[in-house]
């Protein structure tokens, strides 16, 4: 029980469950699920489907934050990905085929990777501070997305494309399945190989890790590419959910949600130890918060105050846990039992 209380993940999980319980109190059938058109239907499914892009972006953000960086450009990359894919589909010769959808998605992902390489180049090679380097793309990137769509919303009607964000497979939303796959990939790549340890080392003490022979430049470059990749895929989800690309508004402020999710999940913005599971829980807390606002019928004027109070409560809950966790990097060694001295 004590180790459960000291676990960093416990309090965010408690907060998430408390929010879900609050919803249940206000609406008796909140947790109810039923089948609709061959897939599960219910508020929980909505949380999974609508939260998938945020979770995905937050995963990428976790690794960036772990290297003591930050990526503010994810919102712009979301917009660019959606803009490129929908513009391609709209201007292609066969706008509703699977091949068109596949090519569009592939182009968007490649664009995301290129932008990640750019961010990584600025931060790791030139040494610009991450917040400013990604601020440049955040500003210019949205302009690029608007340039691609001409400032208008580009609607498409391609069922294959739509399935990325709004489709279902095995009764669950495809978007959450994609996110789960990326999560497993990231977890395996970072925890089963040395990559995770290297990322943490670079974040905790860049100088020491350089002296230890770690190629910090490559590590930092990789995490920014990964973050951009996550943002591009999330961009595909967001635009395919409404089968339209809205370069003006897609992904607006999603970077704040992602960073908030990362911090709620227990990763420190000062870099170092990170927790992918914590981030996932944090992202779902944010999504559930939005759902709670709708369930409780909180008027739009008061929504932000409500969100502020919940965020603060979650952090305060975490605080003693955070303080304890900081003091104990590993449990105290077990002292040998006192030997009875025979008198």
């Amino acid at each position: 029980m004590k180790s459960l209380l000291k676990n960093r993940l416990t309090w965010p999980l408690v907060a998430l469950l408390a929010l879900l319980a609050l919803n249940q109190v206000f609406r008796a059938d909140f947790l109810a699920l039923r089948m609709q058109d061959g897939h599960l239907y219910g508020s929980l499914i909505d949380i999974l489907r609508n939260g998938a892009p945020t979770v995905l972006i937050a995963l990428g953000m976790t690794l960036v934050v772990a290297t003591r960086g930050i990526d503010l450009s994810v919102g712009a990359i979301v917009a660019i990905a959606g803009a490129i894919s929908c513009s391609y589909i709209a201007s292609s010769s066969d706008p509703s085929s699977l091949a068109t959808a596949g090519t569009a998605a592939a182009i968007a992902v490649v664009a995301g990777l290129a932008l990640g390489v750019w961010n990584g180049f600025l931060v790791s090679v030139i040494g610009v501070q991450p917040i400013i380097a990604t601020l440049v793309l955040m500003t210019a990137g949205r302009g690029v997305a608007q340039l691609v769509t001409g400032g208008q919303i580009v609607s498409v009607s391609n069922d294959h494309y739509k399935s990325i964000g709004a489709g279902y497979a095995f009764t669950l939303p495809i978007s959450i399945l994609i996110t789960a796959a990326v999560f497993v990939l990231a977890a395996v790549l970072t925890r089963r190989t040395a990559l995770g340890t290297l990322i943490e080392a670079v974040g905790i003490n860049p100088v020491a890790s350089r002296l230890a022979g770690i190629r910090a430049r490559n590590i930092i470059w990789i995490v920014y590419v990964f973050s951009a990749l996550c943002a591009a895929i999330a961009g595909l989800m967001i635009s395919s959910n409404v089968t339209a690309a809205d370069a003006n508004n897609a992904g607006l402020y999603i970077e704040m949600d992602a960073i908030l999710a990362v911090v709620i999940g227990g990763t420190s913005l000062a870099g170092g130890r990170y927790s992918l599971v914590g981030t996932v829980i944090g992202a779902f807390i944010i999504q559930t918060l939005t759902t709670t606002v709708y369930t409780l019928g909180i008027p739009p004027e008061v929504t932000l105050v409500f969100k502020a109070l919940v965020v603060l409560s979650v952090c305060l809950l975490q605080a003693p846990a955070a303080r304890n966790a900081l003091r104990r990097f590993r449990p105290a060694p077990k002292l040998p039992a006192k030997e009875k001295v025979a008198i």
Binding site: N50, V242, Y294
Partner: peptide, 12 residues
């Protein structure tokens, strides 16, 4: 004023 916003609100 956005499509995704309208969709999410309507679902709820």
């Amino acid at each position: 004023f956005t499509r995704s916003g309208g969709k999410q609100v309507m679902e709820a």
